[in-house]
Nucleic acid binder design. Structure first.
Ligand SMILES: [Mn+2]
Ligand SMILES: [Mn+2]
Ligand SMILES: [Zn+2]
Ligand SMILES: [Zn+2]
Lengths: 140, 140
DNA sequence: CAACAGTTTAGAGTTATTCTAATCTACATT
DNA sequence: AATGTAGATTAGAATAACTCTAAACTGTTG
């Protein structure tokens, strides 16, 4: 568990994204962004558990609301993997490897995997994201 | 709605995959594989609705059971897209475009999109699948 | 036509997530 | 600093997509 970022830094982060620095958002932001380079993949449930353990008074609904607001603000990226959604603090373009045995999601080193031939969207539409998930499992 | 494949062909298809040709499986197979080249993406719910409309007596549990059995048999391929799973009658390797406005899933012409640099799995593990989903949406 | 493994089913249970509508709070304004 | 209000939080109900259970049914084999 990394040391939490200072309140001032966190407050500025929220303000910079037009998010009111409420007690709940401050607490969740500190958990999500403990220090500049620290990237992680977190589910709503896991974050709620962390917040609860840290005695932060935050409801599950607020965790969901906040994750989505942070995502809209560009602070997070949503990655859907079958029946679980991960919120990724690494918002730069990259792809994922999913360990199907453990459910663990790992970043693929950027630049390693390359995609060519992504179709151009019809006019009026745009490509929202290109998600590549490499699924791995232990051999039978 | 394409004409259904004959019962004999459907029966043989099931037998060839060690699946007893029950009334329910016959009905669902005819809906899924109406004729040789006809590919589609179907959700459990949509298939259940089709079967119900066709006055086939099939329960939702059986639809799920059957879709998974067909998938295990290699007749279908499961494609997960956020909170919805599509079963694809096209089991050959290919990727998808998701229209986020309508939820419609479309095949990407194979050969068009290319991937390089897929990581080699650690010894003892294997790559189960590499899923690429290009998400598109109407411009704001 | 047994006999039994395999199959189906209604309905309850689960899990992840969203919704509602009442309550609260950050902060701009006075 | 007190006030007004848009924005935020919350408990709990609701929804959606499955999965499970255990009892009833059926395709196949002998
Ligand atoms: Mn979401
Ligand atoms: Mn499945
Ligand atoms: Zn990531
Ligand atoms: Zn497809």
């Amino acid at each position: 568990m990394a040391k939490k970022q200072s309140s001032e830094v966190t407050r500025d982060l929220l303000r910079a994204h037009d998010l009111r620095p409420t007690r709940q958002r401050m607490a969740l932001a500190k958990l999500l962004f403990p220090k500049p380079g620290h990237k992680q993949h977190v589910t709503a449930d896991a974050l709620f558990a962390q917040a609860t353990k840290a005695k932060t008074g935050v409801s599950l609904a607020t965790v969901y609301n906040t994750l989505h607001q942070f995502t809209e603000a560009g602070l997070l990226r949503e990655v859907s993997v079958s029946s679980a959604t991960y919120f990724d603090t690494n918002t730069s373009p990259h792809h994922h490897v999913l360990d199907e045995d453990t459910g663990m999601l790992t970043d693929l080193k950027p630049g390693r995997l390359a995609l060519t031939g992504i179709p151009r969207p019809p006019r009026g539409s745009q490509v929202t994201s290109v998600d590549v998930i490499v699924r791995m499992r232990k051999k039978a």
